[in-house]
Design a protein around this nucleic acid. Structure first.
Lengths: 114, 114
DNA sequence: AAGATCGTGTAGACTGACTACACAATGGCG
DNA sequence: CGCCATTGTGTAGTCAGTCTACACGATCTT
């Protein structure tokens, strides 16, 4: 069971996971990936080839803003934080996800007794 | 709210919806789309350009089998039914979905009080 | 000096849903 | 009869986003 879903499973969900992670404050890319993985109990695993393009996309859209700073380990790292537009986007995407998950549940649970 | 998620939202979920729809018995394509839409309370809408390619893919993979028959309205229609491999696939994908949805919930609900 | 860890980044392949069509058969209606 | 709505299947081409598989650089340890 739990055959390692990864992101390939669901295109379009990475954004909301990143936005949600940033809600707690500025975080750099590497830490975002680790947070998503640990918060999901290792069920979700974000590859760098997905993560960084996603961050760049979202920065270009004005959802997040970045600055170079030093990580806890003293290394140069790009810290991202939510912009006001990003906060709105997070709310929007989160409610979209909720609606979608509910819709899936409706179909998958349909006439369960049959 | 409920800003019309459609399938564009989540690549990879159409298969399990189709398989689930076929669990109740043979159904033709057009009816599959309508069933998904109504069972999801109009939240999910399957376009023909997504539906038929998906059916062909799944038939090629041996998950479903098809035959030409007559619909309720007396029109020639291609009825699909689950194969044994399709039933296994349905179980597998359904549990994948459950795990994924749970993982999303974990991340999105993380430290909700913050 | 070598390797591990941390951290960012890109190129190219691949999958799958989308828009926008085309086509065929049937039934109702003026 | 001709027209059009409905039912039903199908394709071509586009697009978005994740993947694999790299490369690079800096720091810390041994």
């Amino acid at each position: 069971m739990a055959q390692k879903p990864r992101m390939e499973f669901l295109q379009g969900t990475l954004d909301v996971l990143i936005l949600r992670t940033l809600r707690a404050g500025p975080v750099h890319g590497h830490a975002i990936a680790k947070h998503i993985q640990s918060a999901s109990e290792d069920l979700l695993q974000v590859e760098t080839g997905s993560l960084y393009p996603a961050l760049h996309r979202m920065e270009a859209k004005g959802w997040i803003a970045a600055s170079w700073e030093l990580s806890e380990k003293g290394k140069r790292a790009r810290f991202y934080r939510l912009t006001p537009r990003g906060k709105k986007q997070l709310e929007s995407e989160q409610s979209k996800w909720t609606a979608f998950a509910r819709a899936m549940g409706l179909v998958l649970a349909d006439q369960e007794g049959a």
